[in-house]
Amino acid sequence: MARVSQEHLDARRRQILDGAALCFARNGFHATSMQDVLKEVDLSAGAVYRYFRGKDELIRAIVTEVLDDIRTSFEQAARQTPPPPPHELISAVMGQVLREREGLRIDGTPYFPRLVVQVWTETLRNEELAAVIQSGYARVLAAWVGIVKGYQEAGMMRADADPDAVARTMVASAQGFLIQQALFGEESVATLRAGLSGLMSMGETG
């Protein structure tokens, strides 16, 4: 029997994750069955269950991947000296996250913001998923705290500012941007960048 390459295995796993994410974003977690996922990805049950034991495992994998992508982007920025200012950094990370999922759309609009809202809603009843979200959020927050401290060391931010409070506020701006996309339609990342830049300009003269 011919050996299946790792590239093929990775591509198949990607196919399943993307198809499941579209199903969940379209109909929600409870209204989506594994049969719906199988139909979306056009694979047999055996092919899918080789990678994921069920719907809950699929959900955890999708959520963990997204949080890891966001955390990695912020951590990479934190290694720059000094880090890019918030309006550039947040808009760049959000733009990257959306571009990586650009081909996955529902009725012509990106699926990702809708999926985020579905995930947050599910955490209110699913303690296991809530734990995954809490752990991922803690890692993202830690990356942002490092960025804020980088601002302070570079003299870009007041030394007496609370890094944790600033980090939570910056993360909230990214979360709010995704909610607006999910509820009110596709919005340009440039709008997020311009808005944050405008807020940061307060106190400047001229």
Rank of each mutant, 00 (worst) to 15 (best):
H8V: 15
A138H: 15
E100T: 10
F29P: 01
E65N: 14
R101M: 03
D107E: 13
R99L: 08
V117K: 09
E102Y: 12
E100I: 02
D18N: 12
T64R: 15
C23L: 04
D107W: 02
V97I: 12
R26H: 05
A78L: 03
R60F: 10
R26P: 01
E127N: 09
R13E: 14
V97L: 11
E88M: 04
G28Q: 05
A77N: 09
P85M: 03
A47P: 00
E100Y: 04
L124T: 14
N27L: 01
D69H: 11
G19P: 07
E57S: 15
V116N: 10
A31H: 09
I62D: 07
G54S: 08
V48C: 07
A47N: 05
R101N: 10
K39A: 13
E75C: 13
L38D: 01
P84Y: 01
A21I: 02
A143T: 11
D68Y: 08
R50F: 11
R12I: 11
T32C: 01
R12C: 12
L98N: 00
Y51N: 13
E100D: 13
F112T: 05
F24M: 03
Q96A: 12
L89R: 12
V117M: 09
F24K: 05
A61S: 15
A142P: 06
L141G: 00
I59G: 05
R53L: 07
P82V: 05
Y111L: 06
E75T: 14
A92Q: 14
L89D: 03
G28D: 01
L124P: 02
A47W: 00
A61D: 11
P83K: 08
S73F: 09
T123Q: 09
L124F: 10
R14T: 15
A20F: 06
